[in-house]
Amino acid sequence: MPVRRGHVAPQNTFLDTIIRKFEGQSRKFIIANARVENCAVIYCNDGFCELCGYSRAEVMQRPCTCDFLHGPRTQRRAAAQIAQALLGAEERKVEIAFYRKDGSCFLCLVDVVPVKNEDGAVIMFILNFEVVMEKDMVGSPAHDTNHRGPPTSWLAPGRAKTFRLKLPALLALTARESSVRSGGAGGAGAPGAVVVDVDLTPAAPSSESLALDEVTAMDNHVAGLGPAEERRALVGPGSPPRSAPGQLPSPRAHSLNPDASGSSCSLARTRSRESCASVRRASSADDIEAMRAGVLPPPPRHASTGAMHPLRSGLLNSTSDSDLVRYRTISKIPQITLNFVDLKGDPFLASPTSDREIIAPKIKERTHNVTEKVTQVLSLGADVLPEYKLQAPRIHRWTILHYSPFKAVWDWLILLLVIYTAVFTPYSAAFLLKETEEGPPATECGYACQPLAVVDLIVDIMFIVDILINFRTTYVNANEEVVSHPGRIAVHYFKGWFLIDMVAAIPFDLLI
């Protein structure tokens, strides 16, 4: 008679799926529990143990900040960024110097990925580790590398530091407007667009060049630039800015003055950032001319202004700041037409079709709590990747769950009947059967004279019903998954307890 339990259901295979997918890609990662103190490590794979030199037993239950890997060259700011990422709910990448158990130093890129439950609360953290440099290539500990984003994938490793954006290309926007319009339909740009040429040739750093990471940081200074100062900065030398009595002219307006920039070969870094931020506020060169004239017309309804409409929906549905990093990277690809469009465009503009998908598509409701890094690593669709929660398995109709209350009560009843059979069957065979043979035949009273025979008949009927119930009862397979398919249940029961239950259900007393 089957006594099969499996009270692990309803099970959740999400954690096993993450481990299996990460292991298949030869990654070095740990999984931490966000619900406990210090976000203790609950799993670390073999790749991480080989990377740091510690065994799994030495890593388990330690804080996922990996303070046991810190050393003299470990930056405090990087460690603080990892700790801050564990307090938030967004994906974050941090470069930090770690030390192995043998004392060797290596520069590592740590990717902190939160995993949320159905309520939107962070319950786990996945920390992925990628070695960037070994100890002989690690720089000085005073050099802070965590304020910069990861290198873009479309640049060669040897040319990542030679990417320079020439400031004269930004200063000569109005001069290039006529050349853009003359391109017409034969050019790649839309009317009114501004073409910015980027020099990728390796050259020595000069005062006129600005690194790509500095251009990325310009967006942080746009908020500090007032509207009046932006307007004066875009007017140009024809209309000098008016300053109040006793007030000095704005240095932001002076930063885009061609006369002032041409007199000296070098520009201050602050002026460069502010000038680029001011130019980015204009949607095209037409807006710059309109600002000089004193009238700013409404933005025209053409394809170039609607190019950012799908980007707005993608940004609203993005799951991490990696989408913004990807957008900034692609927006700086050289030799393309940049349409400086305000994100607050007309909502009635139709979304044009684009061959290049900048932001990841909208994630469906079932995966809105899973970050983009987890979705990318697992390579699963929205119909396959579940949320991290207890999910009731989908069972067929008329199927009994093996952990249901009805099955528990039924098993206790069958257990009592088995005990009765084990006690009274030998007793009936030894004593009652002998008395029946010696006594007179009682054929007239039937079952009324033999109450134990009636009980034995009921017990046999219950055993037959138990066999039928076992054909529709779920079970737990070797992978700790609840199986509810009727065919698989029948095959599993035939290979197991079916023969024993059938022999126990045969009414031998009635056959004798």
Score class of each variant (00 low, 15 high):
residue 25 Q to N: 14
residue 155 L to P: 07
residue 301 R to L: 12
residue 361 P to G: 09
residue 53 G to Y: 01
residue 197 D to M: 01
residue 300 P to S: 07
residue 137 M to C: 05
residue 340 F to T: 14
residue 189 G to T: 05
residue 375 T to G: 08
residue 93 K to C: 13
residue 142 A to H: 05
residue 7 H to E: 14
residue 287 D to Y: 05
residue 52 C to V: 13
residue 58 E to K: 01
residue 44 C to N: 01
residue 10 P to Q: 05
residue 326 R to Y: 08
residue 96 I to F: 01
residue 357 E to F: 13
residue 353 T to S: 10
residue 187 G to D: 15
residue 320 S to H: 06
residue 203 A to P: 15
residue 86 L to N: 01
residue 188 A to K: 05
residue 298 P to T: 09
residue 124 M to D: 01
residue 15 L to H: 04
residue 87 L to W: 13
residue 206 S to F: 06
residue 288 I to W: 08
residue 198 V to W: 03
residue 296 L to F: 11
residue 201 T to A: 10
residue 348 F to K: 14
residue 301 R to C: 12
residue 18 I to T: 06
residue 185 A to K: 09
residue 307 A to T: 12
residue 116 K to N: 14
residue 150 P to W: 06
residue 339 N to M: 01
residue 317 N to A: 10
residue 219 D to M: 05
residue 175 A to E: 15
residue 59 V to D: 01
residue 121 A to C: 10
residue 154 W to M: 15
residue 7 H to V: 07
residue 81 Q to A: 14
residue 309 H to S: 11
residue 344 K to I: 04
residue 43 Y to L: 01
residue 105 C to V: 15
residue 312 R to E: 06
residue 304 S to I: 11
residue 142 A to K: 09
residue 130 E to H: 07
residue 228 A to D: 06
residue 259 D to L: 08
residue 128 N to S: 12
residue 91 E to V: 08
residue 126 I to L: 11
residue 26 S to A: 14
residue 54 Y to F: 14
residue 369 N to P: 07
residue 150 P to R: 13
residue 33 N to W: 03
residue 222 V to C: 09
residue 34 A to C: 06
residue 139 G to F: 12
residue 355 D to G: 12
residue 325 V to N: 09
residue 92 R to K: 11
residue 103 G to R: 13
residue 113 V to Y: 11
residue 154 W to R: 05
residue 5 R to D: 09
residue 35 R to G: 11
residue 108 C to V: 04
residue 25 Q to L: 14
residue 79 A to I: 13
residue 133 M to E: 13
residue 58 E to Y: 10
residue 376 Q to Y: 11
residue 94 V to P: 01
residue 297 P to I: 11
residue 22 F to N: 07
residue 47 G to D: 05
residue 277 A to W: 11
residue 213 D to E: 06
residue 126 I to H: 01
residue 151 P to V: 13
residue 353 T to V: 14
residue 57 A to R: 14
residue 286 D to V: 12
residue 10 P to I: 09
residue 91 E to S: 07
residue 18 I to C: 06
residue 196 V to H: 01
residue 178 S to Q: 11
residue 185 A to M: 14
residue 210 L to M: 15
residue 237 P to T: 07
residue 382 A to D: 11
residue 23 E to S: 11
residue 105 C to P: 15
residue 248 L to Q: 15
residue 213 D to I: 03
residue 346 D to M: 05
residue 68 F to N: 01
residue 317 N to H: 09
residue 324 L to F: 14
residue 102 D to C: 12
residue 70 H to K: 06
residue 30 I to F: 01
residue 210 L to H: 05
residue 290 A to V: 07
residue 359 I to F: 05
residue 96 I to K: 01
residue 49 C to G: 04
residue 218 M to E: 12
residue 62 R to Q: 13
residue 280 R to A: 14
residue 334 P to H: 04
residue 184 G to N: 14
residue 241 P to V: 14
residue 238 G to D: 15
residue 290 A to D: 15
residue 159 R to F: 12
residue 236 G to V: 15
residue 162 T to I: 05
residue 187 G to V: 08
residue 208 E to P: 15
residue 37 E to F: 10
residue 273 R to H: 09
residue 196 V to A: 04
residue 307 A to N: 07
residue 7 H to R: 07
residue 162 T to E: 08
residue 249 P to Q: 09
residue 350 A to Y: 01
residue 287 D to I: 07
residue 222 V to K: 15
residue 212 L to F: 06
residue 159 R to G: 10
residue 224 G to T: 05
residue 83 A to N: 11
residue 34 A to Q: 05
residue 169 A to Q: 06
residue 128 N to M: 06
residue 339 N to F: 01
residue 372 E to S: 15
residue 26 S to T: 06
residue 300 P to H: 15
residue 343 L to C: 14
residue 156 A to Q: 15
residue 29 F to I: 01
residue 60 M to G: 01
residue 119 D to I: 06
residue 120 G to A: 12
residue 90 E to Y: 13
residue 325 V to Q: 14
residue 194 V to A: 06
residue 315 L to T: 12
residue 109 L to A: 07
residue 346 D to E: 14
residue 329 T to G: 06
residue 322 S to Y: 08
residue 118 E to V: 09
residue 248 L to S: 11
residue 303 A to I: 08
residue 9 A to N: 09
residue 44 C to F: 01
residue 299 P to E: 07
residue 263 S to Q: 13
residue 225 L to Q: 08
residue 80 A to C: 15
residue 154 W to D: 15
residue 2 P to S: 06
residue 325 V to W: 10
residue 323 D to M: 05
residue 126 I to Y: 14
residue 267 L to N: 05
residue 138 V to H: 13
residue 4 R to E: 13
residue 349 L to H: 08
residue 260 A to M: 07
residue 349 L to K: 14
residue 340 F to I: 12
residue 312 R to K: 14
residue 160 A to Y: 11
residue 158 G to I: 15
residue 213 D to S: 06
residue 256 L to W: 12
residue 303 A to S: 11
residue 371 T to R: 07
residue 83 A to F: 06
residue 137 M to L: 15
residue 245 P to Y: 14
residue 238 G to A: 04
residue 285 A to Q: 05
residue 256 L to H: 13
residue 260 A to R: 11
residue 98 F to N: 01
residue 281 R to D: 14
residue 193 A to W: 01
residue 117 N to S: 07
residue 325 V to M: 14
residue 145 T to A: 14
residue 365 E to S: 07
residue 119 D to L: 10
residue 386 P to M: 02
residue 36 V to N: 11
residue 285 A to C: 15
residue 94 V to Q: 06
residue 74 T to W: 01
residue 103 G to E: 14
residue 129 F to Y: 07
